[in-house]
């Protein structure tokens, strides 16, 4: 019997991971007016990391991405809560947001909203929670 190897899978995954990460960033950015947002962007990011887990193994991925995902989830929840509380300092309700139009050098007239900071927190929380669950119950020990 021949030895098992997955050279086709590794070659495909090297290209596909880049595409999936780019698509997750696109989903994250488009989330203010169009379908997308922090939650689904984080899930697409998790899909790319899961593909890396499938193609390589947990130790090799964790050696190259030295992040404790439980800490990442906690940091995400903290960012979300603090951006929600930040509006309360000025007497507004919890989770109220402001936005304005800013002239950026390359993009021109761009709408900047503080809801993006909340979305960053949501994305980090989703990434941390999902990867912690997958690495806990998907292990072969």
């Amino acid at each position: 019997m021949k030895e098992l190897n997955d050279v086709i899978l590794r070659t495909v995954a090297k290209v596909a991971v880049v595409i999936i990460l780019t698509f997750s960033i696109n989903l994250f950015i488009s989330g203010h007016h169009r379908p997308g947002g922090g939650f689904i962007g984080g899930l697409a990011f998790v899909a790319a990391i899961v593909l890396l887990f499938l193609v390589y193994d947990i130790e090799k991925v964790q050696k190259n991405i030295p992040i404790d995902f439980k800490v990442l989830a906690a940091i995400g929840v903290l960012i979300s809560v603090f951006t929600g509380v930040g509006g309360m300092i000025k007497g507004k309700p919890f989770l109220s947001q402001v936005f304005g139009h800013v002239n950026l050098p390359v993009f021109g007239q761009t709408e900047m909203a503080t809801a993006v900071l909340f979305d960053v927190g949501v994305a980090l929380a989703v990434i941390g929670t999902s990867l912690t669950i997958i690495m806990s119950i998907g292990d072969d020990r």
Partner: peptide, 25 residues
Amino acid sequence: GILSFIGTIAFARFVERGVVIERKQ
């Protein structure tokens, strides 16, 4: 497309090797 691709790879690994995510290759 992405989710179907990853799901198919995961099921194929489970059928062929019995384990989806390996701790150390």
